[in-house]
Design a protein around this nucleic acid. Sequence first.
DNA 1: GCCGCCGATGTAATATTATAACATATCGTT
DNA 2: AACGATATGTTATAATATTACATCGGCGGC
Lengths: 164, 164
Amino acid sequence: MIHNQPWRDHNHGDCVQEAISRATALCAARNVRLTALRRRVLEILWQSHVPLSAYAILAQLGDGARPAAPPTVYRALDFLLEQGLVHKVEHLNAYMGCPMPEHPHLAAIFLCEHCGCAAEIDAAGLAAEIGAAAAEQDFAIRRQTVEISGACSRCREQRAGTRA
Amino acid sequence: MIHNQPWRDHNHGDCVQEAISRATALCAARNVRLTALRRRVLEILWQSHVPLSAYAILAQLGDGARPAAPPTVYRALDFLLEQGLVHKVEHLNAYMGCPMPEHPHLAAIFLCEHCGCAAEIDAAGLAAEIGAAAAEQDFAIRRQTVEISGACSRCREQRAGTRA
DNA sequence: GCCGCCGATGTAATATTATAACATATCGTT
DNA sequence: AACGATATGTTATAATATTACATCGGCGGC
């Protein structure tokens, strides 16, 4: 199953709201605090159609007056990453909301280099393979990253079209 | 098969030399230039038992006088990455020599957070899974990263030992 | 041989990403 | 209200990476 494809027909406002309420419920259940700042950062991430850099979030945080300082956003991101509410996209040094934060999982992220869109896919098969490889060498996994950069189908079609 | 485990018994000087000659042959075959600078960067990477940051390489490049400037090493790394002679380790913002540069492949890199060692494993199964997922959504892959951070068996044994 | 081109390198400045260290505020409990 | 613990604000700085432009050096055509 493919997630995070905001170009598909949907009410984006609603999907942001849903992500926030799920996060709220999750934090309540875990007895950790989804403070106003942390919720705000999560909202900003969800509102974006593409992964955002920490400084892009920062720019949106300081409304008008002066922009917030880096530690503000990095601390919020640390919390959200710990809780599995966001993923870091290493290829971009950017961050995106996780569409399935309820349980820990291996996120395989497809990144289009043309439109910037990011799709997280449920990679249970991959996770199993990696787990087996780790078991074979008695390696204890703490963190895993799977990222695939390239061209998504929409961009490929467009390019094929313009070339003709 | 597991590669890049310099703690295993071997003559490290020889293995560096072998890596360099393979790179030399490869570049000759491809008709690209493995210049003195590029070869030097590759050597520095291979001599290290752990992935090195660009600035760590830089520090080793400038012998004595003044250290080289960043573009020097980044350009060399760009070349080596393009040729598949090194991998970037995203979790560390660091670089390591690729033990099997002859043909493009998916490198799955296991990173120990305690000793810093990095092992690249041949991940044909993973590559197949990712390829299938990409085909399903008509995604054209250009670059893929698989990294697993955690604790290697040696470090886990040591820690178990000291705890007792 | 000389010229001009092109790829590689040198150099200076700066952009981007991230953290350290310490002060202040806020929440929840007593 | 007082306290401890957690969260946030603030300042400075570290670490990573790129842009822009100058210079060098080999190579092919003349």
